[in-house]
Design a protein around this nucleic acid. Structure first.
Length: 341
DNA sequence: AATCCGGGGGC
DNA sequence: GCCCCAGGATT
C-alpha cells in the first residue's frame, strides 16, 4: 500500500516545484478549464495562451457563448485550427446553459458534444476532484516508458492498458494535480526526443530507464506520407475591399469559411500579376501557394467584397491570412508613410 | 481499426 | 523536412 503511493508522492513533490504558471492553472472555474482543455487538443500550450485570454475576455461564461453568433466565435478561433472544436464547444455551452449548470462527473461531461474521454476526465478531476486518470499524448508516452510498454501506443488495447496503469498510480486525494503533473512531466522532461531523465522524479522507478531503452519508446506506427499540391490564389482588391468566396457549409474542412478565389474561378486573369508565394501545410497536404494580385471589372459569381480592415472579424483560415499578409507588405512599400523605408 | 480535421513550433 | 502536440468524431 505504502509502496504504491510512492510514485505519486515523488511526482507531486516534483510538480509542486516545477509546475509552469499557466493561465488555466490559476482557476478552477469549470468554464475556464473546459475552454483550455478544448483548445489544448492537439495544440501546444504556447499556441493556446493568447487564444485562451482573448476567448474568455469575450465569452466569460457558457451563457455568453451560447448566445453568440457562430461567425464571431469562428473569427475568434481563426488560426487555431480544428474548427469543429469551436462549433462543438458552442453546442456544449448551449447544453450547459439549458441544464442550468455544469455536469459534475466525467461520465456526464462525456455526454457533451466534442468532449471525449480525455477532456471529461480532465475537467472532472481538476474541477470536481473525481479520481479518474487522463490519457493524452503526454501520459501515453510517460506511462509507455515507465512500464516499458512494447506495443504501439496508438492501438486501443495498449491505450487502455496505459490508462489503467495511470489510474493505478493516481493519488485519489489529488486527482487534478496528479493528472496535470503527469502531463507536465511529459511536456517538460519526458520529451519525445532527448528526454531529460536526469531531472525526472521517476528516474529510478522507470522501467525504460532501468533497461536503457528510453530512446526506443514509445513504439509508434509509421505515418502516411504527405501529398504535394499547388494552388494559385487571386488577391483582388478594390477601394480597400477584398474579394472573397465562402466555402460550402458541408465541406469537410473549413466549412463555411471565407477564402480567396483561385485563379481558375475567375473569368479572366490577364490583368493579374504575381505577388508572391509561400508554403502551407494542412494535416498531410502540403500546399505550394502562388498569389496573384490585381483588379477586376466585375464581381465574379459566388464572390463577395469585404472591407480589408475587417477581415479579422471573419472566419478565415491561416492560408488565407498568409496570402493577405503578403498584400499588407506590398501596401507598406507603396506607401512610405506607413513603412520604415 | 483507419481516417480526417488545422496549424505551428522545434529540431 | 519531419514529428507531434493536454483528441474527438466519423466511417
Amino acid at each position: 500500500m505504502r509502496n504504491s503511493r510512492r510514485p505519486a508522492q515523488l511526482l507531486l513533490r516534483w510538480y509542486a516545484s516545477a509546475r509552469r504558471d499557466l493561465p488555466w492553472r490559476r482557476t478552477r472555474d469549470p468554464w475556464c478549464v473546459l475552454v483550455s482543455e478544448i483548445m489544448l487538443q492537439q495544440t501546444r500550450v504556447s499556441t493556446v495562451i493568447p487564444y485562451y485570454e482573448r476567448f474568455l475576455a469575450r465569452f466569460p461564461t457558457p451563457e455568453s457563448l451560447a448566445a453568440a453568433p457562430e461567425d464571431e466565435l469562428l473569427a475568434l478561433w481563426s488560426g487555431l485550427g480544428y474548427y469543429s472544436r469551436a462549433r462543438n464547444l458552442k453546442r456544449a455551452a448551449e447544453a450547459i446553459t439549458a441544464q442550468g449548470g455544469f455536469p459534475e462527473t466525467a461520465e456526464a461531461w462525456r455526454q457533451l458534444p466534442g468532449i471525449g474521454g480525455y477532456t471529461a476526465a480532465a475537467v472532472a478531476s481538476i474541477c470536481f476532484h473525481e479520481p479518474c486518470a487522463v490519457l493524452d499524448g503526454n501520459v501515453a508516452r510517460v506511462m509507455a516508458r515507465f512500464t516499458a510498454e512494447p506495443g504501439d501506443i496508438a492501438s486501443p488495447g495498449v491505450r487502455l492498458r496505459l490508462k489503467e496503469r495511470a489510474q493505478a498510480l493516481l493519488d485519489p486525494r489529488r486527482p487534478g494535480d496528479f493528472n496535470q503533473a503527469v502531463m507536465e512531466l511529459g511536456a517538460t522532461l519526458c520529451l519525445p526526443r532527448q528526454p531529460k531523465c536526469l531531472l525526472c522524479p521517476w528516474r529510478d522507478l522507470c522501467q525504460a530507464h532501468q533497461r536503457g531503452i528510453v530512446d526506443q519508446l514509445p513504439v509508434k506506427a509509421p505515418r502516411r506520407q504527405p501529398e504535394r499540391l499547388e494552388l494559385q490564389l487571386a488577391l483582388i482588391v478594390d477601394q480597400g475591399r477584398l474579394l472573397l468566396r465562402r466555402r460550402d457549409g458541408d465541406e469537410r474542412r473549413l466549412a463555411g469559411f471565407w477564402e480567396l478565389p483561385s485563379l481558375e474561378d475567375l473569368p479572366s486573369s490577364r490583368a493579374l500579376r504575381p505577388l508572391g508565394r509561400f508554403r502551407h501545410s494542412i494535416t498531410h497536404n502540403h500546399f505550394e501557394v502562388e498569389v496573384w494580385y490585381g483588379r477586376l471589372r466585375r464581381r465574379p459569381k459566388g464572390c463577395h467584397w469585404h472591407e480589408l480592415d475587417r477581415i479579422d472579424s471573419l472566419p478565415v483560415g491561416a492560408m488565407t491570412r498568409k496570402a493577405v499578409a503578403l498584400l499588407q507588405r506590398v501596401h507598406s512599400q507603396k506607401s512610405p508613410q506607413f513603412g520604415t523605408a
